[in-house]
Design a protein around this nucleic acid. Structure first.
Ligand SMILES: [Zn+2]
Ligand SMILES: [Zn+2]
Ligand SMILES: [Zn+2]
Ligand SMILES: [Zn+2]
Lengths: 154, 154
DNA sequence: AGAGACTTTATAGTAGCTTCAAGGTCAAGC
DNA sequence: GCTTGACCTTGAAGCTACTATAAAGTCTCT
């Protein structure tokens, strides 16, 4: 029977750092697990499935709040699932909005890049000049619209 | 002559919070400015232009590190501007990568959403089931690739 | 002199972790 | 029996780019 895990087992199997598991517990996404005599956390299949669920949601870039919401719905199996759809649709909207913003950004960036096809000295570089004088102060930019973000390495 | 600003003037004119200006100073993007007798910061046209430059870069979603890099190049006006192009091209790559990831994500999300066209009880909801059993543990997902992220309100 | 608008610094909070430090637990080896 | 090493525990700090709060000092007007 593979239905008793310590935190490291679970972490290895689901390819997630142990600290992240503890963090999810701290954040109330995972329940406080049973403990061994030596105070080690012990997980069963239910917790493993719950963590799998959470990780899938994170892979889809949902916030922990969105995931909490879905977990609550999942914990009330008799309810209708219209609300599940609503959460998902909202999140699809977040991603769509971010794509829209980034596409705008990409256009602006390529426009800026085109100002220096013939590299000279930076004093005369069209890129640096463009960055110093674009219309930004009033508005017209694509910044600051809805949809939560993501952060990556490098 | 409008070439002496206090922090609030600058903030109003460039539509940025005063705290952000101080933060940029703290981060070394803006130099330590002169002070009045009463210890108030005083800015001139050079600082205003520098801040404008920074804000344009931020509007294009560059990191403060990327901006620091560009400012260094800007401060060495005799140098060639090949490096400016390199920074910009790298950043264009970051944005492109994020767009790619988000498009992947959007596909997965729509796929998931399609598993529940006929809302029933959450116990049988295809969405919740999909989230509990997707292939995520090993790999195959689009997560964790380059390009820095963005955060927004809501 | 006192009100109000501005400024100063320092500190904490945001999201979702990651990394570090200092120590406790457990099985194996000598 | 005792040490080594792998694992586990908690707590706190660091990351990005701000944002918000607090407590106090400065300036201007009346
Ligand atoms: Zn969302
Ligand atoms: Zn150039
Ligand atoms: Zn970049
Ligand atoms: Zn459903």
């Amino acid at each position: 029977m593979t239905n008793r895990y310590r935190i490291g087992d679970l972490a290895t199997r689901l390819a997630v750092p142990t600290q992240t598991i503890r963090y999810y517990e701290h954040e109330g996404l995972l329940p406080k697990p049973a403990r061994t005599e030596g105070n080690y956390r012990v997980y069963g299949i239910a917790e493993r499935e719950r963590l799998t669920f959470i990780l899938h949601c994170r892979a889809l870039d949902m916030t922990l709040d969105e995931i909490r919401h879905l977990l609550r719905l999942r914990d009330a199996p008799g309810q209708g699932c219209a609300e599940v759809n609503a959460v998902l649709d909202a999140h699809i909207g977040h991603v769509a909005e971010r794509i829209r913003l980034l596409n705008d950004l990409q256009l602006q960036l390529k426009d800026l890049r085109a100002r220096c096809e013939s590299p000279s000295t930076s004093k005369d570089c069209g890129i640096l000049q463009g960055l110093a004088s674009f219309p930004t102060a009033q508005d017209g930019g694509a910044s600051r619209a809805g949809g939560h973000g993501r952060r990556a390495q490098e």
